[in-house]
Nucleic acid binder design. Structure first.
Lengths: 114, 114
DNA sequence: CAGATATATCGATGCCTGTCAATATCGAAA
DNA sequence: TTTCGATATTGACAGGCATCGATATATCTG
């Protein structure tokens, strides 16, 4: 990119087509809420998964709200749930977080000049 | 965490207090939009930064909308801008992306059982 | 089946945000 | 200073989303 050029030499524009961007945005949207970040943190901190009943109080939201956020996290593939008797246990899906991390890595590294 | 217990053994709850979660959520919110992801991608793909004039057309939004998104990215610390004559050049701030990546790493690794 | 507990869904509400057209501001050049 | 091109701001609108109370569903236990 040359500043002496009359501006506006075209960029590579085969970068992140709209469709891919929307998929990715949906994933990051799942992380873009304090309650969901705290839920992830709580679940991640407890080895072997966390019972949903243990999440309502520490996250400081109503039970329906927590249930809603857990659903968002599940549909985003960030957590998985499993029924154990009357309770439902949630655990982190590390691969999903790895994938998002990879996206950020790519963006950052390409930007690092020689 | 014992499933035989009467449910609800307390988790570590000193994890991601609400204040920290809100700060982090704001950062991820900046990534949670297709237009902004494409802007980041375009900027990252062009070494030395990208002229704002090169971003409007490929991102497929109006000039005011692109300006708005660039402001969001700048205020989130994900990009920096510099005036060069009549144009403004944007570049990625890798450290910021690294920081967000670190957060995802921490959450994932803690969840990996022994 | 009846009661108790855990989780999910529904409906409503208020706030936040992405988008654009119109307009303002800023810098360069004549 | 006037004009032009680049970028930012404003105002308005529509859609999305976080939140809760009320309620439904599901599971276990008598």
């Amino acid at each position: 990119m040359n500043i002496d050029a009359p501006c506006c030499t075209p960029l590579l524009d085969a970068v992140l087509p709209e469709g891919d961007a929307e998929v990715l945005a949906t994933s990051f949207k799942a992380l873009a809420d304090p309650a969901r970040l705290r839920l992830l943190s709580l679940i991640a901190a407890s080895e072997g998964g966390a019972c949903a009943c243990d999440l309502v109080t520490p996250v400081g939201r109503s039970q329906p709200t927590v249930s809603h956020h857990l659903k968002v996290l599940r549909e985003a593939g960030l957590v998985e749930s499993e029924r154990r008797g009357p309770w439902i246990w949630y655990r982190i899906v590390p691969e999903r977080l790895d994938a998002l991390r990879a996206v950020l890595t790519a963006s950052a590294e390409v930007a690092v000049p020689a």
